[in-house]
Design a protein around this nucleic acid. Sequence first.
RNA 1: UGCCCGAUAGUGUAAUUGGCAACACGACAGAUUCUGACUCUGUUAUUCUAGGUUCAAGUCCUAGUCGGGCAGCCA
Length: 565
Amino acid sequence: MTDPAPERVPKHFIEVAIDSDLAAGRFAHVATRFPPEPNGYLHIGHAKSIFLNFGLAEKYDGTCNLRFDDTNPAKEETEYVESIMEDVRWLGCQWDNLHYASDYFGQLYEWAEQLIRAGKAYVCDLSGEQTREYRGTLTQPGRNSPHRDRSPEENLELFRGMRAGKYPDGSRTLRAKIDMASPNLNLRDPVLYRILRATHHRTGDEWCIYPMYDWAHGQSDSLERITFSICTLEFENHRPLYDWFCTNLEIHHPRQIEFARLNVTYMVMSKRKLLQLVKDRQVQGWDDPRMPTISGLRRRGYTPESIRNFCADVGVAKFNSTIDIVRLENAVREHLNRIASRHMAVLDPLRLTITNWPKNADGSDRVEMTQAVNNPESPEAGVREVPISGSLLIEQDDFREQAPGKFFRLKPGGAVRLRAGYIIDCHDVVKDADGKVIEVRCTYDPATKSGEDSSGRKVKGTIHWVSAPHATPVEVRNYERLFSVENPESCDDGKTFLDHLNPDSLRVTTAWVEPSLCDVQVGQAVQFERLGYYVADRDGRPGNPVFNRIVPLRDTWGKIAAKEP
RNA sequence: UGCCCGAUAGUGUAAUUGGCAACACGACAGAUUCUGACUCUGUUAUUCUAGGUUCAAGUCCUAGUCGGGCAGCCA
């Protein structure tokens, strides 16, 4: 047997860079890391970064660490650390090592003294406001701090004093001595340490000085022997500083590579805004099913596989793009179509009576069992039994008294197939005092039972239904996009992204469901036939589930109907 | 007005690194269908502008245009 020619998988620019570094001998292997700050919950944008970093490690047979960038105790909490670990695991990624930047505070401090002794860092007494003034502007160079030329000995003493808590918060900083005239503002003597008395979620009150991101991040990478430090575009201007620290400290020097972060239409992705939604109770929490957080998507019913496929589909590049949300919805439909078992549920019921349905001796409806395919995409999912009687509930939308030509659902004088049941003919309707149809009356054709149809009859439409005496009312939460505009961040003056919240993002309703739906386990995704994918929410109880709508099925008829005059 | 980065069908991403611009999603049309789902077929439409190098440029060079980022003791 000859192997088929391996399909050339296109590589993105980061893989190209890795290939060339490996080939040139700059690095011998691939070591990456995912470095979240524990100041909020992870969102779909982080998922892109997670799959990128862990994916690279897997592809190149390397390693990937999880490291918490916890250098700002004012914003960080253990709750976030725990949620992040849970989310990364849920996405299916396993870190090689777990680290915290706070583990490196001691080493970072020593390196700071090293820099001071080398005359490359100094203690600055300028206030925050003064520091800003001295920094200059985008178009004007900065001025040297008056403390820039303190001796290493004096700096060492002052820095040790800072660490020992001799000075008040914000009164002094340690700064690198680089170039106040650099066109790159990050190089204008960046602050390395600030004095900040705050209890850190891991180190408690051991420190009253905390390292800044730039001072902590690259060195943490270095300590972990990371080879490729992958981050988002806004850190591009920080790369010269990243490199400066590694060079001047003479330590292992990873390569920082930047890519464009993920944006999705109808979503906000900034942690600040997500936090605001939670704090303002616009949503019910970080894991509200409308949130773009990993925990929100999980509760919404998205699968890790669908999120992974979405991220792969979107690609990796440096172009700042916004992905159409339909691609995310599409990804979950694609996966759920393969794995979700089908069930029948009626969301907006209309009574349907089968007038020729056989009766028992006592006058009650005979109950029959019919076999329904669990998943046409996967025969091994088998079949289930569904009770049927002469008293059914169908969807209001599936009946029209005045129907246009293309409407091939139920209408007076028309016929449809009951999914997994019989073909029925509509002969009558019952109306209330206002002329509204409140009941549809049909006859069924006994020769057309699903699976044993000997009639040869063909009908254009198939509708779903539930047997009224067997139907259970359950709570259903129909979710829509949280925002009603493509880009909630762009606002006219005086407005905020909150003004773009979709008032219909959650519609709670009651569905009447077939018996099999009462046993669905929390977290299990199912398809309500002809309606959409739903997942059993944790708010449900055994035998009394609550369903979240994950995403509706594609609705071609809906499009046609919308065009009607 | 400084520095850095980017620009390929509607959206996003490719193009064997200078050699016939393609894939996915969308839209549209059709086929199929016991889910108006899924699946299948077809149609649609692309290299920001102007110069230059070259037999040959999406790719290299120059200038411009447009978009993004940077003036936290945030990350």
